[in-house]
């Protein structure tokens, strides 16, 4: 698996704590060269199972930029490779969508967040309801797999607002929704007053989404994204770019976050080594929040006993040597309980 990070944005959304920067697009060519250099110096599988180009705002980069990027990765993809790109409804126009598909990208993901104008302003999004609808319609002309991101638990949310967003998404025919409960990050402009704490409404929202598209992870609904599932199965992946993260052989790799620093030295990575216990924790917590599940065998004895208890209570299922959760919403509590 390969992740490519595009850390450029036109504006920074109020809730955002991702590694993304405004007013740095003059660095995009140097950045491209750094990406290519890092890619060339990283050992790669024969073919990638999936590629995910995320951001930031990948749709800020034009097609010629992607032409150069894809030149070096073409050898590592085939027609089974799932290739996703994230896009902003206002920067991804008809031509860009058409040409990015022609490059081989087969899944597109729009950061819609909402179709409600007031909420879009509240979140600091630069696109409008109209932009979002147009982008999705354009995408459907070329892509079978269209995802949108939606956000809930925002201070101004109401059930009516959320319901109309979900219904419109359904009407527009997207086959995947990533729906996130707003998380207040310290490095973002938002604070807790921007968040709505309403457990009942959150659960209601998840049920609503689930009635249209099947939930396969706490925040993901619809046709399973292979790349995402790969994360939760702790598969190896290369993380390309400033602030990307890679994972290989129980090590996590963190290149520079700062764009200039990354350009200066794209081969640098801080390495985090995971021990047996760390891996166990991650397998359990990731497995329980998604359909991935985890192997019964990895559990130490006391954890197996605890797991048995929860199987009896119907909160977990044991199937063909793997443990699965019946309620992703309790993933954290269950992880703490059994470990």
């Amino acid at each position: 698996m390969l992740y490519i990070h595009i850390p450029f944005c036109q504006t920074k959304c109020f809730y955002c704590a991702f590694n993304s920067f405004q007013g740095q697009t003059h660095l995009k060519d140097a950045y491209l060269q750094a990406l290519i250099k890092q890619f060339q110096h990283t050992s790669k599988p024969h073919k990638f199972e999936s590629i995910f180009i995320g951001g930031g705002t990948p749709s800020l980069m034009d097609i010629s930029w992607y032409n150069q990027l894809f030149e070096v990765i073409y050898d590592y993809i085939d027609d089974k490779t799932e290739i996703t790109i994230e896009a902003n409804p206002n920067s991804a126009d008809y031509e860009w969508i058409k040409q990015i598909r022609q490059l081989g990208v087969n899944r597109i993901s729009f950061g819609v967040q909402s179709f409600n104008e007031e909420k879009l302003k509240f979140l600091g999004r630069s696109h409008s309801r109209k932009d979002a609808i147009r982008a999705i319609s354009n995408a459907h002309k070329f892509f079978d797999n269209v995802n949108i991101d939606l956000m809930y638990s925002v201070a101004i949310d109401t059930k009516d607002l959320l319901k109309s967003d979900v219904l419109l998404a359904n009407k527009l025919g997207v086959n995947h929704i990533s729906a996130y409960s707003l998380t207040i990050e310290q490095s973002s402009r938002f604070n807790h007053t921007h968040k709505k704490d309403d457990e009942e409404e959150e659960i209601w929202m998840i049920k609503l989404l689930n009635s249209f598209l099947k939930q396969y992870e706490i925040s993901n609904f619809g046709r399973i994204c292979k790349h995402n599932l790969g994360y939760w199965q702790l598969k190896n992946y290369i993380g390309l770019g400033a602030g990307a993260v890679g994972f290989k052989n129980n090590k996590r790799f963190y290149p520079h976050k700062n764009i200039q620093k990354y350009i200066n030295n794209p081969l640098f990575a801080h390495i985090e080594k995971l021990d047996h216990q760390d891996l166990l924790y991650e397998k359990v917590l990731l497995g329980l929040r998604s359909v991935a599940g985890f192997e019964w065998e990895i559990l130490p004895k006391h954890a197996q006993e605890k797991t048995q208890e929860l199987i009896k209570e119907g909160k977990l299922i044991l199937k063909k040597g793997r443990v699965y959760s019946t309620d992703f919403l309790l993933a954290d509590a269950i992880s703490v309980y059994i470990l």
């Binding site: 994360y231 924790y281 917590l285 954290d332």
Partner: peptide, 29 residues
């Protein structure tokens, strides 16, 4: 009983952070 106890996002870079949070919770327990 608890009905929801899980964080929204958990992709590549979030996983270590998430694991550390869990370990902390575990210490609290």
């Amino acid at each position: 009983a608890l009905r929801k106890d899980v964080t929204a996002k958990c992709y590549g870079g979030d996983i270590s952070r998430k694991r550390k949070l869990l370990e902390k919770q575990k210490q609290g327990k």
